[in-house]
Amino acid sequence: MFRLSNNLIGILNVLTFILSIPILCAGVWLSNKGVTECEKFLDTPVIILGVFLMLISLAGLIGACCRVSWLLWTYLLVMFLLIVILFCFTIFAFVVTNKGAGEVVSERGYKEYRLGDYSNWLQKRVSNTKNWNKIRSCLVDSKVCSTFAEKYVAVPAEQFYKQHLSSVQSGCCKPSTDCQFSYVNPTNWTATDVVQTNPDCKTWNNDPKTLCFDCQACKAGLLDQLKRDWKKVAIVNIVFLIVLIIVYSIGCCAFRNSRRDNAYRGKNGA
């Protein structure tokens, strides 16, 4: 008779296999139908994830249900490596997102962001020209500033300054406050005669496809958003780690049961 641990591993891997099918299909769809740089960037990781889940679930399912010890051993080895990788990533995510925060500006509802406030590792990622060109393309394709402009187009300057903008909107869709540009509308500003020490002031352009997408403030705003997202992912990872450890423990019991069953059948056959 199959033991409970074998049945549980079998059920869990059937669910995982079913989950891998839409993930793999989504990756193939992005590969064939993807138009933007963001979509093209995502297709390969999604396909790899789908294939990985499909293969590992098949290994666990066949190993547990057919009592194939070497497949279960492979399954447990991959699970162990996955637990180690997730644990390391979770610690890493908390470390690299520990620094950095928006600066409160007088008489402004939004905050300003400085690239130097964030961890060196994150700064290097966005300072790399190749990386930033891809990120910049994603920001343009996502129409984050177009939506921003449409939302606040009829808002006068006094009310606009009181708005609570997201870090990306504040850093990428408008010039920095210390540039002291004259407000026309959310994405249209006029330069003044004030001496500008912030290099972002010269980078700003009213062109909807340029704006402040190449500004240091835009990179900092993105890192601030990334920082908050990574912390959420890290918390989810902790829960996922607990689930993985439980599944791994059940898998160890199934592996032990399979070895005992194989040994028992071997003795009877002899």
Rank of each mutant, 00 (worst) to 15 (best):
Glu39Lys: 04
Ile242Gly: 05
Val195His: 12
Val233His: 09
Arg114Pro: 13
Lys162Thr: 03
Leu72Tyr: 01
Ile242Cys: 06
Phe52Arg: 00
Ile56Phe: 02
Gln169Cys: 01
Asn6Ser: 14
Gln123Val: 00
Arg67Asp: 13
Asn98Asp: 14
Leu19Lys: 09
Ala270Leu: 12
Ile242Arg: 05
Asp200Ala: 08
Phe240Asp: 07
Arg67Gln: 15
Val195Met: 08
Lys33Trp: 10
Ile238Glu: 04
Leu49Asp: 04
Asn128Met: 08
Cys173Thr: 01
Leu115Lys: 03
Leu86Lys: 10
Gln196Glu: 14
Asn185Pro: 09
Cys38Arg: 15
Trp204Glu: 04
Asp224Lys: 11
Gly63Lys: 14
Lys219Glu: 00
Glu103Asn: 14
Pro175Asn: 04
Arg3His: 14
Gln159Trp: 08
Phe255Gly: 02
Gly27Arg: 00
Ser167Ala: 10
Leu76Lys: 11
Asn205Phe: 00
Leu122Ser: 13
Cys25Trp: 06
Cys172Asp: 07
Ile238Met: 12
Lys134Trp: 02
Glu107Leu: 08
Pro175Arg: 00
Ile250Gln: 01
Arg228Met: 13
Leu12Gly: 03
Asn237Leu: 06
Lys231Arg: 15
Thr36Pro: 01
Phe80Ile: 11
Arg125Cys: 08
Asn98Ala: 14
Ile23Phe: 02
Ile85Gln: 02
Val68His: 13
Lys111Gln: 14
Ser142Asp: 08
Phe255Met: 11
Lys174His: 10
Val233Ile: 09
Asn198Ala: 03
Tyr75Pro: 05
Leu42Asn: 07
Tyr161Leu: 15
Cys215Ile: 06
Phe94His: 10
Lys162Pro: 04
Cys253Val: 12
Phe2Gly: 09
Tyr248Glu: 00
Ser258Tyr: 03
Gly251Lys: 04
Ala101Phe: 07
Tyr152Asp: 14
Leu15His: 13
Thr74Pro: 03
Thr190Cys: 02
Val144Ser: 06
Ile135Gly: 03
Val144Leu: 10
Arg114Lys: 15
Asn131Val: 02
Val68Asn: 12
Val95Gly: 04
Ser106Arg: 15
Ser176Ile: 13
Ala93Ser: 03
Tyr183Glu: 03
Lys124Ser: 10
Leu76Asp: 11
Thr74Met: 10
Val84Tyr: 00
Phe17Thr: 10
